[in-house]
């Protein structure tokens, strides 16, 4: 029976799940703060600085404010779906964290605890599947609002995510041809000792990061909520914490996609210029250092997300489709062909 699991493993995984989910929530909370600080910095103004030292408690104040706002459910909306929308957005945002290898093994209580919730052998496909489900939260919420602007936003989100999924999938195929595995853990292990995939797949990474921006609905691709044309896009009718969930899900998505990019292309928890194998006697500290390196890589990616948001203006919708279908897909196909040819010529 392959489903029989011992009790200790269940407890261990439960604790790990709680830590990872709570961790991503806290990180997302402070990402909202960091976003406003970075925006202030790029626009030469101080940013939030009133609540606590350096405005540290701003996210708490924001959260409290959202909780105390009046909650409005429009009369003509289908209520169950209206509530389901933000819940689904949040759920799909958090689900991806299950397969990310946050670090190496930790030795505690005479047990080797892997800092990864589930090392399934189809890890990258799981990420891809959950990402493709992410659009439902937006679409269902948009449709249930019974508002033309919301519906437009939802339809835009759907066509945008489907279009960019294609290029993303093809760029991942090139990576898979190179690594020969679907498990994120194994990909990270292959990249130890500085052989990061970015060296071999620069074009693939470029396509992947552009698609990640589009899948997260981040500027310059946030057409689903383009304020200048659609008021608030898919969340026009939302208020209080339901709106908060939508906004928050975006930041969690950003955090998780940064983690995916760091583990696919930038070595995951591999510390650059540091030979882990030679310092095996450090035990748990080694795993913690790895975790720290991974988090630093994630923070750098999140900063890039913000940097682009406050630098590049929003695309027009036809420009978005043009970029997705006529530039990224042919480029991704070329990248796949070139990778195949290189593997054939040089061998693995």
């Amino acid at each position: 029976m392959f489903l029989s699991i011992e009790l200790a493993t269940i407890i261990e995984k439960l604790i790990l799940i709680v830590i990872v989910v709570m961790g991503s929530l806290v990180v997302a909370m402070y990402t909202t703060f960091a976003e406003r600080k970075v925006a202030g910095w790029l626009q030469d103004r101080p940013g939030p600085n009133r609540a606590g030292p350096f405005g540290m408690f701003q996210p708490l104040a924001d959260g409290l404010k959202l909780f105390f706002k009046e909650e409005i459910i429009p009369n003509f909306s289908s209520k169950a779906l209206f509530v389901m929308g933000p819940a689904l957005a949040m759920m799909t945002a958090i689900m991806t964290s299950a397969v990310i290898p946050w670090g190496d093994k930790v030795h505690l209580f005479d047990r080797d605890i892997s800092l990864q919730i589930a090392d399934i052998n189809i890890g990258i496909l799981y990420v891809f599947g959950v990402v493709s489900l992410g659009v439902y939260g937006i679409m269902i919420g948009a449709w249930a609002s019974n508002n033309k602007y919301s519906l437009m936003g939802g339809l835009r989100a759907a066509s945008q995510i489907i279009s960019y999924e294609l290029a993303m999938g093809i760029s991942i195929i090139a990576l898979l041809m190179f690594t020969g595995t679907l498990s994120l853990k194994e990909m990270v292990l292959q990249q130890q000792a500085g052989h990061w995939n970015i060296i071999y797949q620069p074009l693939g990474f470029l396509i992947f990061i552009i698609c990640a921006f589009a899948e997260c609905n981040r500027t310059p691709f946030d057409l689903a909520e383009a304020e200048s044309e659609l008021i608030g896009g898919y969340h026009t009718e939302y208020s209080s914490m339901k709106l908060g969930f939508y906004l928050f899900a975006e930041y969690i998505n950003m955090f998780i996609s940064s983690a995916v990019m760091a583990s696919l292309y930038f070595g995951g928890y591999d510390v650059p210029f540091f030979n882990e194998a030679a310092h095996a006697d450090m035990g748990n500290w080694l795993a913690l250092i790895g975790l720290g390196a991974f988090l630093i890589k994630i923070v750098i990616f999140i900063f890039i997300f913000m940097w682009v948001r406050w630098t590049v203006p929003r695309f027009r919708y036809d420009q978005l489709m043009h970029l997705g279908w006529r530039i990224l897909i042919p480029l991704a196909l070329f990248n796949m062909l070139a990778t195949g040819a290189a593997i054939l010529y040089f061998g693995k």
Binding site: G129, L133, M139, W143, S159
Partner: peptide, 25 residues
């Protein structure tokens, strides 16, 4: 597992989104 995840990616993630798209439109 491969069939399971591909079933979700293709049917739930792509085809049903298109269905939903058309019905909503």
């Amino acid at each position: 597992q491969f069939l399971a995840i591909v079933n979700i990616i293709v049917y739930a993630g792509a085809i049903m989104v298109l269905f939903l798209f058309v019905v909503m439109l």
